[in-house]
C-alpha cells in the first residue's frame, strides 16, 4: 500500500475531543460525564428533549460556560491540541471569533439588529484586522449571495428581515472568517417548514463545500437526519446512545431513543 493510501485510510486526528465533561447548577444536573470526539468536516447532531442538557453542553463547549469537571481539547491551527479551559480569556475569545462560529436559535442573540446586513458580516473581518472598506464590503456581498440574500438589501437592517433571512444572515456572519468548527443551537427553531427546508439545504451545501465541522443541537429529528453524520442522544444530562445517524434513528437500542424516534409525527 502506498503512503498516500495509508494516509487516506487512517482517520484524521480529532478537531475537538471532550472527555468527562460535567456541569451542574447547584443540585441541578446540567450535563454529566459527556465524552466524544469530532473530526474535521464532520457533522455531529445532539438530540434530546427539553431540559436534557443539550444547550448546557453546547455552552460549555463554546466557552460561554465554565464546566465543573472534564477536559475539552481543541486542535488549534498553529499550536496543535490544546485544552481550551486552560487558555486565557483573550485567547479563548479570539478563537471563538475566528476559528469558531456560533449560530444561535434566536437570530437576535447573534446579530446586531441596528447595524446593516453588510456591517454584520463585516464585523468579524474587521475584528481580525481588515482595514479596507471596499474589500470588506465585497466580501460581505459575496457571503450575502452565498446565503441567497438579495444584494439590494446589503444596507438594510436585519430588523426589517424575515426570520429565515435573519437566520441566513447569522450563518453568513459566522462563516465569513472560514471557521473550522461551528456550533448551532436549534438553527431552524421558530421557522416555518418550507423555510426550514431551504435553510437546511443551504446549510448542507455550505458545510460540504467548506468542509466545516458542525455540532448541531436540536430536538428536531428531521434536521439531524438531513445534516448529521453522527448522532448523540441525551437524557437527563447524560449521553445514552451514540452512533451513525441512520443507525441510531433506524435501529434505536435505548428505550428512550426508541420512544423519541417513535414519537415523531408521520405525515
Amino acid at each position: 500500500m502506498t503512503t498516500n493510501a495509508i494516509r487516506k485510510l487512517t482517520p484524521k486526528p480529532p478537531l475537538l475531543e471532550v472527555s468527562g465533561l460535567c456541569k451542574s447548577y447547584g443540585g441541578q444536573i446540567g450535563c454529566r460525564d459527556v465524552s466524544f470526539a469530532i473530526r474535521p468536516g464532520e457533522v455531529l447532531g445532539i438530540v434530546g428533549e427539553s431540559g436534557s442538557g443539550k444547550s448546557t453542553l453546547l455552552a460549555c463547549l463554546s466557552g460561554r460556560l465554565a464546566p465543573d469537571a472534564g477536559t475539552i481539547s481543541y486542535d488549534m491551527k498553529d499550536r496543535g491540541p490544546v485544552d481550551i479551559l486552560t487558555l486565557s480569556e483573550p485567547e479563548r475569545r479570539r478563537l471563538a471569533r475566528t476559528d469558531w462560529g456560533i449560530v444561535h436559535q434566536n437570530p437576535r442573540d447573534g446579530l446586531r439588529l441596528d447595524v446593516s446586513a453588510g456591517g454584520n458580516i463585516g464585523e468579524r473581518p474587521m475584528a481580525i484586522g481588515a482595514r479596507h472598506y471596499g474589500n470588506i464590503r465585497a466580501e460581505a456581498q459575496d457571503w450575502l449571495q452565498k446565503v441567497e440574500i438579495d444584494l439590494a438589501r446589503t444596507d438594510h437592517r436585519p430588523r426589517t428581515f424575515s426570520g429565515g433571512m435573519q437566520q441566513r444572515l447569522q450563518i453568513a456572519r459566522n462563516l465569513v472568517t472560514r471557521p473550522r468548527l461551528v456550533f448551532m443551537d436549534e438553527p431552524t427553531g421558530g421557522l416555518d417548514v418550507s423555510v426550514q427546508a431551504r435553510l437546511l439545504d443551504l446549510l448542507r451545501g455550505l458545510v460540504r463545500e467548506l468542509g466545516i465541522a458542525v455540532i448541531i443541537v436540536t430536538h428536531d429529528l428531521a434536521v439531524v437526519r438531513l445534516l448529521a453524520d453522527r448522532l448523540m442522544v441525551m437524557q437527563r444530562g447524560r449521553v445514552i446512545e451514540q452512533g451513525l445517524t441512520d443507525q441510531v434513528l433506524d435501529d434505536p437500542h435505548h428505550p428512550y431513543t426508541q420512544l423519541l424516534v417513535s414519537s415523531v409525527l408521520q405525515v
Partner: peptide, 13 residues
C-alpha cells in the same frame, strides 16, 4: 473591531 462597524455603517449609508 466592533468600533469599525460604526464607521462601516457611515460609509455604507
Amino acid at each position: 473591531g466592533a468600533m469599525r462597524v460604526t464607521l462601516y455603517e457611515d460609509v455604507a449609508h
